Simulated scan of single mutants.
Amino acid sequence: MQFIDLAAQYKHLQTKIDARIKTVLEHGKYIMGPEVQELEQKLADYVGVKHAITCANGTDALQLAMMVLDIKPGDAVFCPTFTFFATAEVIALAGATPVFVDSDEATFNICPKDLESKIQQTITEGKLKPKAIISVDLFGLPANYPELERITKLFDLKLVEDAAQGFGGSITDNQGNRKKSGSFGDIATTSFFPAKPLGCYGDGGAIFTNNDDYAELVKSYRVHGKGKDKYDNVRIGINSRLDTIQAAILLEKLAEFPQELINRNKSAAKYESELCNKYNTPKVPVGYTSSWAQYTLLDAKRDEIMAEYKAKGIPTMIYYATCMHQQTAFKELGYQEGDFPVAERLAKQVFSLPMHPYLNHIV
C-alpha cells in the first residue's frame, strides 16, 4: 500500500497527461510556454482571485510574498510553530525575525488567542516591528481567517496564507458566501509538490492575490526583477518559473481536482466512522471544508500504534515531530521547552494515515 498513490492517479489520467506533454514537446516552448498562462488563468478562476502567478516551488512562493511585502531586518513576522520548516525559513531569509505562535487545540492551526498575545508582547518589548502574519492551512484545513483578518486590521499587519496543504479547502460564512483556500489575506501561496492535494511531477508553486500592484511585483521578482523585458532588470529578484511541462500536467490534474476532493472527503468520512471511538480524529469546524492533504490522528501511544499498522503493511507518517521553536536553526531565538504546550504535545502524538483520491480503504 502507498501512503500517497501517485501511480494510481497517473494511470487514471495517463492518456490526457501524455497528450499534454506531447503537445509541449512538439511546440518546444519549455519555459513560460502557453500552458503556463492557461494554468494561471484557470487557477485564478478556481480560487476566485484576480491573479494567480506560478513559480518554481512553494517555498519560492512564500519568499516572493516576503519580497513583495518588503519584509526586512527588524520586522517581526508571526507564524505557527507547528508547521513545515519553509514557513519560518522564508522569514529568516528575508532578514526578519519569526515570532512563533502556539496551535489551536481543536484544529491544530495557528491559535488566534495566542497570536494576539504574541503581537501585544512584541509591541511591549519594542525590539521588533510587527509587520505580517503567515498562517498555514495545516493538513488541508483552512486556518481561522475570520479571526486572523480581525487581528490584522486591529494591528495593521499584512496577512499571508500558506495554502501549500490547503488548496481545495474553503470557508463558508453565515451569509452563505464561500471562499476557497488561496483567496484569504493579502497574498496567498501554494505548492505543487507531488504529494500535495494538487501536485505536479516535480516542483512547482503559485501566488494568489487580488492586489494588482502585488501581482506585477511577483511577475517581476520571479524573473530576476525584470522590467519591460528580461534584460531590463529594475530590482533584485530571483529565478523562479514553473516550467511548461509541469504546467501542462497540472492543467489535467486541475480538471480532475473537484472529483478528487470528493473522493478525499469520502475517505475522511470513512476514517472518521471507523476510528472516532479509538483515536482523537480530526474535526472540521462548521462552515469549513478540508482538502485532506493528510489524515492525522492524535494519540499518546503513537509509536505502538504506528508499529501495529506497519505490521499490517499499512504505512504511516509523522507531520511534524519537531516544532519550529525546537529547530537548531532557530536556537538563538531563545525559546524553551514548554513555551508552546499545545504544539509540543501535537509533535509528540500526531501521526497520519494514507490519504489520496484513489484510496482503497484500510479500516
Rank of each mutant, 00 (worst) to 15 (best):
D5V: 01
T15R: 12
E26A: 14
I31P: 00
G33F: 15
V36S: 09
Q37A: 15
K42R: 15
H51P: 02
A52T: 03
T54S: 15
N57P: 03
A61S: 09
A65K: 01
A65Y: 08
D70F: 09
D70C: 01
P73I: 09
P73E: 15
D75N: 08
F82G: 02
F82N: 04
F84E: 13
F84W: 09
A92H: 11
A92K: 00
L93A: 11
L93W: 12
A94G: 01
G95Q: 08
G95E: 07
A96H: 06
T97P: 02
P98S: 11
D102F: 09
E105R: 10
N109S: 06
I119A: 09
E125F: 09
E125T: 06
L128Q: 03
E149V: 01
I151A: 14
T152M: 06
K153H: 13
V160P: 01
V160W: 11
S170R: 05
D173E: 08
Q175L: 13
G176T: 04
N177V: 03
K179H: 07
A188D: 04
F192A: 05
P194D: 15
G204R: 05
I207P: 07
Y214E: 02
Y214P: 00
V218W: 12
K228I: 08
V234S: 12
R235D: 13
I236W: 14
I245V: 11
I249H: 08
I249N: 06
I249Y: 10
L250A: 12
L251K: 02
K253A: 10
L254P: 00
L254F: 11
L254C: 07
E260K: 01
L261Y: 10
N277A: 12
Y279W: 10
P282C: 09
Y288N: 02
T289F: 13
S291G: 02
W292F: 15
W292T: 00
Q294R: 01
A300W: 14
I305Y: 15
I314K: 07
Y319E: 13
Y320W: 15
T322D: 13
M324D: 01
Q326G: 04
F330L: 10
E332D: 13
E332W: 04
Y335C: 05
V342T: 03
E344T: 02
R345P: 00
L346I: 04
F351I: 03
H356P: 06
H361M: 14
I362C: 15
